[in-house]
């Protein structure tokens, strides 16, 4: 078992390093132009927040419509940490995550009593409350006029270099998020979380501390969303409470549902797809929302469980299959590896 885990980790790590080098090289040589580089970076941030939402909605089964609220807490707290306390970038981003986690813990408590629609409404309200607070805390957040002058990832003056550095920062955090969520889901707490989604009473009768794991999942989800928000703040260099209104939360729900509730790879695919479709449809102006809604309906008609359902595309499995073919039959004993991405 241990050996498998090491093998999985190495495969995953090398795969992500290869993907990174390829993407960075494409960016550097200009095959992927700056515009697409920016989009990929933004997609990375969307992926982080969507994964955090998938953790709570897809894996734990608690519908949250307040993810943008979490995101804005992370964004503002890290921006304040950087601008008012002059903390380094990494520290600020992590502070953004931690502050949001505290709020996640707080919102986790009402979730113990609320279910389904009621919980969705509560989290929606939470998101709106946060937005209104951000508008009114003018001294720190700049209020409705927004917060300007957030330091960027890098300031070399070289446009190309800046965009590669931006991309690298976000990419590293995407990988970290994927690793965290993936390891969590395949661990013992992860099993507990999934069983809560499946059936709370049964989970309870199997000896799972349902309350604990629900709050745990909310806190974890908030932490990741906060990290995503912090990256968002640095990426744009400007924050305005309107960026985190209700429809932003809905966008993340759309990504998670499109990708498949409970699928990490699905969320990644849908995150990238969503970012691009949103851009392509920009020339339709306001009509893009209509087209977007239409596209959603079509997807839901033909893939009601999202693109991936609860399945995962597993690089590790892929590599394993390849290796086995190389060894020509090698061992015929069935491997008991679960869908580890």
């Amino acid at each position: 078992m241990k050996k498998n885990r090491i093998f999985n980790t190495i495969t995953l790590l090398s795969a992500s390093v290869i993907v990174f080098i390829v993407l960075a090289a494409l960016l550097f040589t200009g095959i992927i132009d700056e515009y697409n580089g920016q989009l990929l970076t933004l997609a990375g941030i969307y992926i982080i927040v969507s994964l955090s939402l998938n953790l709570i909605t897809g894996f734990t089964g608690q519908l949250s419509l307040g993810q943008a609220g979490f995101m804005s807490i992370g964004a503002y707290s890290s921006a304040i940490a950087m601008m008012n306390f002059h903390l380094p970038l990494v520290v600020s981003i992590i502070i953004g995550g931690l502050v949001t986690a505290v709020f996640g813990l707080l919102i986790g408590f009402p979730t113990l009593r609320l279910r389904g629609d009621y919980l969705a409404i509560t989290t929606l309200g939470f998101g709106e409350i946060i937005r209104v607070i951000m508008v009114n805390l003018e001294t720190y957040t700049g209020g409705a006029a927004g917060l300007k002058g957030i330091p960027s990832f890098s300031d070399t003056g070289d446009f190309l270099k800046d965009s590669i550095i931006k991309f690298s920062w976000v990419y590293v955090f995407v990988i970290i998020t994927i690793v965290i969520v993936n390891n969590l889901i395949n661990s013992s707490p992860g099993r507990a979380i999934v069983s809560i989604r499946e059936d709370e009473i049964a989970a309870n009768s199997m000896g799972i501390n349902v309350s604990y794991y629900k709050i745990f999942s909310f806190t974890m989800s908030a932490f990741l969303a906060g990290i995503g928000g912090a990256l968002y703040a640095v990426y744009f260099g400007y924050l305005n409470p309107v960026m985190f209104w209700f429809l932003t939360s809905v966008n993340f729900v759309v990504i998670v549902v499109l990708g498949g509730m409970g699928s990490i790879t699905g969320t990644i695919l849908a995150g990238v797809g969503f970012t691009y479709i949103q851009e392509w449809l920009r020339f339709f102006k306001d009509f893009r929302l209509v087209i977007f809604g239409l596209a959603l309906i079509i997807v839901m008609l033909f893939w009601p469980r999202g693109l991936m359902g609860t399945n995962e595309f597993s690089i590790v499995k892929f590599v394993r299959k390849y290796i086995r073919k190389e060894h020509e039959g090698g061992s015929s004993k069935p491997s008991k590896i679960k869908g580890v991405k």
Binding site: E198, D199, A202, S205
Partner: peptide, 9 residues
């Protein structure tokens, strides 16, 4: 539990 309540997925 009553009604079996297995983890269906």
């Amino acid at each position: 539990p009553e009604g079996r309540r297995i983890f269906a997925n």
